[in-house]
């Protein structure tokens, strides 16, 4: 695929910068979703020079398909370094597809407190939403067949690939 991830990330950071200025957002708190979302969030966090440390979420404990697929054996600790109460959170993920990951992430964030606002930023937005969730900042929009998946590999270098999944499009 011909998409340069670093170019897309730079465009995303400019877009977020604009939002921050227009919306008068003070001290946003950036949170990345494991694993790809954290890679993108790390870069955005550096480009935007956000003061507060980056938060990370592993949504494995909040997934809606535990009884179907069981425990994720590679679950990582979630780490929100500061209180989320009253903060403007910029939630970052690599690919927005069904919306179920974001649903899980929102539930997890709300178990930490009550943020003032949550803005979603994603590297790739593809079709196939199963929940009413939309991204405010998008690196690139893709239309794919239901059997196709877009995958981000990394962290160095970050590369996007489209793969054909056997058995059709699953969630997450």
């Amino acid at each position: 695929m011909n998409l340069q991830v670093c170019d897309l990330v730079r465009e995303m950071s400019e877009e977020i910068q604009k939002l921050i200025r227009a919306g008068g957002i003070e001290r946003p708190l950036m949170v990345g979703i494991h694993t790809g979302g954290v890679w993108i969030a790390e870069r955005l966090h550096a480009l935007l020079g956000i003061e507060d440390p980056l938060g990370t979420l592993d949504i494995s404990f909040y997934r809606d398909d535990f009884s179907r697929v069981g425990m994720n054996p590679r679950v990582k600790p979630s780490h929100l370094p500061l209180s989320v109460d009253g903060r403007h959170i910029i939630l970052v993920d690599d690919v927005l597809f069904t919306g179920r990951t974001i649903r899980a992430a929102l539930n997890e964030i709300f178990d930490y407190g009550r943020p003032a606002r949550v803005t979603l930023a994603v590297l790739i937005e593809r079709d196939g939403r199963e929940l009413p969730i939309e991204a405010r900042v998008v690196g690139h929009k893709l239309k794919l067949e239901s059997r196709q998946h877009v995958k981000l590999s990394g962290p160095n270098p970050l590369e996007l690939k489209i793969v054909n999944a056997p058995g059709g499009g699953g969630p997450q």
Binding site: D58, S60, F61, Y62, F66, M71, P73, R74, V75, K76, P77, S78, H79, N107, E108, F110, D111, Y112, G113
Partner: peptide, 23 residues
């Protein structure tokens, strides 16, 4: 090791305002 690593992720739940996960 998988038990220890998974427990490491659960160790953070006590720091949440709502000290539970819906698993």
């Amino acid at each position: 090791l998988e038990i220890l690593d998974t427990a490491e992720s659960f160790a953070g739940v006590k720091n949440q305002a709502v000290k539970k996960v819906p698993l």
